[in-house]
Design a protein around this nucleic acid. Structure first.
Length: 235
DNA sequence: GCGACAG
DNA sequence: ATCTTGTCGC
């Protein structure tokens, strides 16, 4: 026992400075469960409940809105969704995105009446300056399997993958492979996949391809993106 | 010191 | 992230 029964909760000591935030990352990264790249452990592809999370901001009003959308991993149909609106908890600082997004994301997950088999984040996991991006952080705080699917290569390098859907190339930080540039649509620019918690890199890419069946981005993040924007207007 | 920099 | 219409192309 002890996966979670009482909901997700935000640590009471949420950082307010960059130094504190960085220290938290260095500490929590020890708690990430890493699987081998080709590991078949973790959530099965094409089944179960996949949850996409995303956040939208209105810096004018200092308001943030998050959304969590649960999809059927096989049909990609929406099963349930939830949103949370609050105050911006941290400024945007490259490498510290999690401190800005996670408070609101946990609120939305809390209100979601489903237990995710996998959570898909809009951003990075392992592919991070300190190997502890948004997806890694959310995974550690919730205990759930997580992956990060980003739209930009951040500070990393990569050779263009082949032109077809499914083609990929290593995403590199120096000589270390921290993720993959994965083509989800023929002839369209790739997305950048990295593992968060309790999943391997090949499985993370397989899930991404299954979710990005009709568009470049995973259906989970597309639904979460539109929903949090809608919630931002309303809230 | 300068430039780059997930969302 | 966000400011923002139409438009070229399959």
């Amino acid at each position: 026992m002890s996966q979670r029964t009482a909901g997700y909760r935000l640590p009471t000591d949420w950082p307010t400075t960059e130094a504190e935030a960085t220290a938290v990352q260095l500490s929590l990264r020890e708690r990430v469960e890493r699987y081998a790249d080709e590991s078949v452990e973790g959530p099965a592809v094409g089944t179960g409940t996949v949850v996409g999370v995303d956040v939208a901001y209105d810096d004018e009003r200092d308001v943030v809105a998050a959304a969590a959308v649960a999809l059927d991993g096989g049909t990609l149909e929406v099963l349930a969704s939830a949103t949370a609106v609050g105050r911006v908890a941290f400024p945007y600082v490259p490498g510290l995105l999690a401190f800005r997004e996670i408070p609101a994301v946990l609120g939305a997950l809390e209100r979601l009446d489903r237990t995710p088999d996998l959570v898909v984040c809009d951003g990075y996991g392992l592919a991070h300056p300190r190997r502890f991006g948004l997806a890694s952080h959310l995974g550690v705080l919730t205990g759930l399997p997580t992956i990060g699917v980003a739209k930009n290569p951040f500070t990393f390098r990569f050779e263009a993958p082949g032109p077809r859907r499914g083609d990929w190339s290593p995403l590199l930080d120096g000589g270390e492979e921290v993720g993959r540039a994965l083509r989800t649509r023929d002839g369209v620019k790739p997305v950048f996949v990295s593992v968060g918690h309790r999943i391997g890199l090949a499985a993370a890419c397989a899930h991404t391809l299954a979710l990005a069946r009709d568009y470049r981005l995973p259906e989970s993040t597309r639904r979460a993106d539109s929903l949090c924007r809608e919630a931002l207007r309303a809230g």
